[in-house]
Design a protein around this nucleic acid. Structure first.
Lengths: 220, 220
DNA sequence: CGCAGGGTGCGTACGGCGTTCGCACCGACC
DNA sequence: GGTCGGTGCGAACGCCGTACGCACCCTGCG
């Protein structure tokens, strides 16, 4: 897993040497996997899912669409890679003391929501088909979150459903928010409901779920 | 709503009368809004979201793609209409006695999940962008469900977030299920987790949310 | 120093998509 | 019988994802 970890600067044009001079055209410096992911992320964040096409993605880095296929199997893989990239922004506390689980899960849920609202296209990916295969970042976050429930004391048969309850709520709630957000963004007008109220409503549901899970845990 | 209920056979060439004889081609019998919705539903249920194109939809009823635009503004409207059509399958109990709210909400949640699993493409619509405008069926169901929370005794400021909590969970959980389901269906192999276990896991999360909401209600 | 060979960019092309436009035709109404 | 609104549709436009093969460059070897 995790092929290359270069990643320093995806745009740096092989800086200094005058080179032999590119004969035919401005030869692209690299066009690597990492650069493709960075460019795709730029397009997605700027204009959403429908703005991501292989042609535009190539254009974003001054290359032709078909060149991308040397580095990536297809559009699906690009989306998988970008999704895993932004999953690196997630913050899931480590499972230390059993007593901290509620606060830790709450923070994780808010972190997932915040990431999705920063990158509203994530909702389309998560809500629609879900990732076919989990990337390393997403996998790591899932395992960390599951550990939270396990060390909290949930029996083996309940840890997974409990985690799924929280994640499903966050994904469902945030998908709706992101859709509404990008719709108002497209139509230009200002938000209908202020941010503070949306935050509050989200937290209301999350706390009710945690209440239910906590009660269940106490009864064992 | 529900313009005409002909529908007998979308290919039948206006059976009995010799007619004057269709001069140029086999003239289609009607091609109405209701027929378009029915044909779209057939395609979607059979082969999922990616199988719905205006050309295939036309072909399904023996017509050209462009003919559809006489009855429908575009593909988006087709999807809106079909979504609202299946929302007619939802069962949301009426808000009678305040004490029945938990059972009623639970039934509503299961009904939404069952409908979505019967029509897995619904998850793509709900999870991705959500309906831009609510159709009459969806609107009616939303109002009925909100009434459930209001008569249960939730204060005005909490009824909406409480409902959203339940609906968000159901949508999020079911999207994941539907995606996994259609993925295994496409790849041909049998289901990885048996139906009974999936039902159980879904109900676990739903009951925890209801526990949390019930506790909140009791504290007021 | 020359040359083979693999990696890489890209032009072309194919099939499909949503949608627009103008023409041809039908039934109904005056 | 003539007109006129409604309707189906062929052609076309500009997108899309992707397969294929050619041209080029860099590298490593003799």
């Amino acid at each position: 897993m995790s092929a290359d970890e270069q990643h320093h600067d995806p745009v740096a044009p092989a800086v200094a040497p005058a080179w032999t001079g590119p004969r035919r055209k401005e030869r692209q410096p690299a066009l690597s996997r990492a650069q493709i992911v960075a460019a795709a992320l730029r397009l997605l964040d700027a204009d959403g899912m429908e703005a991501l096409s292989m042609r535009k993605l190539g254009g974003e880095m001054g290359a032709a669409a078909t060149s991308l296929y040397r580095h990536v199997t297809g559009k699906d893989e690009v989306i998988e890679l970008v999704l895993d990239e932004v999953c690196g922004e997630l913050v899931v506390p480590a499972a230390d003391a059993p007593g901290d689980w509620r606060e830790a899960v709450s923070r994780s849920g808010h972190s997932l929501r915040a990431m999705t609202l920063r990158h509203p296209w994530v909702a389309s990916v998560l809500g629609q088909a879900g990732p076919a295969r989990f990337g390393p970042n997403l996998l790591r976050m899932s395992e960390r979150m599951l550990a939270l429930f396990q060390t909290a004391g949930f029996p083996a048969s309940e840890a997974v459903p409990a985690m799924r309850a929280v994640v499903s709520y966050v994904v469902g709630a945030t998908s709706g928010e992101a859709a509404q957000l990008s719709r108002t963004a497209r139509s230009g007008q200002s938000e209908r409901s202020p941010r503070a109220l949306r935050d509050e409503n989200f937290d209301y549901g999350l706390q009710r779920i945690l209440d239910g899970l906590q009660a269940r845990l106490a009864r064992a």
